[in-house]
């Protein structure tokens, strides 16, 4: 009787442990499938034209997505120029000065902002910038992406600055440095690795964003002609091409997906390496 119960306990123990491991394997299957498809189908689409040519009109074979690659780089660049400095400043405020109710509110806002659907940001930027400029533009797209980056950069900056030991701050202040000098040359510098990691991860995150670009940067079949003009991007092209019935466009969509995933993964890995080097060297 007792032996039987023990047997059952042992069995359910084994069973559940195996199930937990199986769940992990099962969840990783789609990852494998996605990476495999993107790599194989994407590689078939990539050639010299893909990186140098403009997209062809519907029905014509060939062509490339060079403008979308450049466009994505421009949009991400714009977003970084706006989002990263602001995010770092806010992070500094939270880590170095932020106390009391306001800091709590900022921190909370920040956390909540990471959960806001990115399409909402698209609507809002449309309602403010696009309506005011009376046209879709690279600027509007960049602002939308920057808004998504902002809370990510802020939180990592704050966390990284908090890891800097207080003795460093005290030493600097004791030597007569002013507070901004201390923060800038001592605290920020020793946390640099972590901040770079966080910023690069934020860049990787927004590079693939599509929803906020749909009604801000829109898309374009041509090279970009100015920041106040609509601009092509890889994610939007993947979306529009995947939802057309044309073989040729599907092929290009897979190519674009491969380039985009490669960009995102390389940035993410670079982020980790940057963090490790700066963290371990000291």
């Amino acid at each position: 009787m007792i032996a039987g119960r023990d047997q059952r306990r042992k069995f359910s123990n084994k069973l559940m442990l195996v199930l937990a491991a199986a769940a992990t394997v099962l969840a990783l299957l789609p990852l494998g499938s996605i990476l495999l498809y993107v790599a194989t189908k994407g590689l078939l689409a990539l050639n010299w034209d893909f990186f140098t040519q403009l997209p062809k009109p519907v029905g014509e074979p060939g062509g490339g997505l060079a403008n979308a690659i450049v466009g994505t780089l421009i949009l991400v660049g714009l977003a970084s120029v706006m989002g990263i400095p602001l995010g770092i400043m806010t992070g500094i405020y939270l880590a170095e000065f932020g106390r009391g109710r306001l800091a709590w509110l900022v921190r909370f806002t920040c956390d909540v902002m990471t959960g806001i659907p990115s399409i909402i940001v698209g609507i809002v930027v449309y309602g403010t910038i696009v309506v005011a400029m009376k046209r879709f533009s690279a600027i509007a797209g960049g602002v939308a992406l920057a808004i998504i980056m902002l809370p990510l950069v802020t939180r990592t900056t704050e966390e990284m600055l908090k890891l800097v030991p207080n003795s460093l701050r005290e030493a600097s202040l004791a030597l007569g440095a002013s507070q901004w000098r201390t923060t800038y040359s001592i605290v920020l510098r020793s946390a640099m690795g972590g901040i770079i990691t966080g910023s690069l991860l934020a860049v990787a995150r927004v590079a693939g964003e599509t929803a906020p670009l749909l009604f801000t940067a829109l898309s374009s079949r041509y090279w970009h002609t100015g920041l106040d003009q609509r601009i092509a991007s890889l994610p939007v092209y993947i979306y529009t091409y995947a939802t057309t019935p044309y073989e040729e466009m599907h092929r290009l969509a897979w190519g674009a997906a491969l380039v985009l995933v490669a960009m995102v993964l390389v940035t993410s890995i670079a982020a980790r390496l940057a963090g490790r080097r700066a963290g371990g060297g000291r």
Partner: peptide, 9 residues
């Protein structure tokens, strides 16, 4: 890390 639109594709 994989973009949403790639999941869609």
């Amino acid at each position: 890390a994989i973009p949403s639109v790639v999941y869609g594709l």
